[in-house]
Design a binder for these strands. Structure first.
Lengths: 170, 170
DNA sequence: CAGTATATGTCAGTGTTGTTGACATTCCAA
DNA sequence: TTGGAATGTCAACAACACTGACATATACTG
């Protein structure tokens, strides 16, 4: 049920792209590409006291300024304790400020400071540069396919979160 | 230099797919999709004493039976101490055996035991199922684009490793 | 053969990121 | 006013990565 081409290969149409061999290549491509994807920001952050978790928090705070902790929690998919550790250091270092909500004072709204924005800029410039180069090499048709497959690969809740973000930005 | 559509949008041709907004969507898609990508094996492994690192080792040993430790080290991109911790437990639990090399006795060649193969099967079945469903939903053209972009996103050494593996399997 | 290089394994320490569990505070809403 | 939601904090722990140092066996080279 998983060696060779058991999955497909008959059925008249061209379903060769569903061969187990093709699927495995897709899996390995995903593994190697994700390493490249995170390599540049990781390199930058290695010299500071921050890591990938800080990058993610900064990215989504930049993306949706004023977002609440709970909101961020759902997007990032980690526990509040885990996120809180990260946020605490970012606030302590003056990269993020957390303001008590006006309508609901239990909520904390998160914003980047100028220094936080500068770091965000540096990190996303590096990541965008790689993405841009990959997109340019691959061409628009490949990029469209890339995004179609990625969206199909997400969990449904993540797909919703992603779509919401996408619409927010356009 | 990074807000709006500074990157492209003129130049006559359709370079809209290189807009900063598009790049950011690509970045976020990668982030969410990778979570889906690892979710199923992670869930399975959570109930055992193993984690993602064990999965990776098992995958590539299955992929290239008899591979050496050094080889695996380069593919996985971790330190030997890190890999060794994982291999030690896998060997101790009887999922992997390590044989002294015949031509070079310094080398250890790694193989999955029957039990190791069973676990590999379980894990990759789960991962392949998701990949298959994503591929089927997206269609062959999108899949081709997906792989093109991923390859362009890898570091050059990883691209080489990936290509080598790809050719080994076909 | 002597010396150097390679492949592997191991010990000890450290850092980041994730997890549970427990508990306090604040505040909205029924 | 009471219950529950949102947030924060403390403590303990585990997985997985890192560095540095050292040991052993083997292979290669002059």
């Amino acid at each position: 049920m998983s060696d060779g081409r058991s999955t497909s290969a008959y059925s008249g149409e061209n379903l060769l792209f569903l061969t187990d061999e093709q699927l495995r290549q897709g899996i390995e491509a995903m593994f190697f590409a994700y390493r490249g994807f995170t390599a540049d920001p990781d390199r930058i952050l290695a010299n500071m006291a921050y890591g990938r978790a800080h990058h993610r928090a900064i990215h989504f705070i930049h993306r949706a300024p004023g977002t609440t902790v709970n909101n961020l929690l759902n997007i990032l998919g980690v526990t509040k304790q885990s996120l809180n550790r990260v946020l605490r250091t970012l606030v302590a270092q003056g990269l993020v400020i957390s303001k008590v909500g006006k309508v609901d004072k239990r909520e904390r709204h998160l914003f980047l400071t100028d220094e936080g924005s500068r770091l965000e800029q540096t990190l996303s410039d590096a990541q965008r540069a790689r993405m841009r180069s990959a997109f340019r090499d691959a061409g628009p048709a490949a990029v469209a396919g890339f995004r179609t497959v990625l969206e199909a690969m997400m969990d449904t809740e993540m797909q919703r979160a992603y779509t919401r973000l996408k619409e927010t930005g356009a």
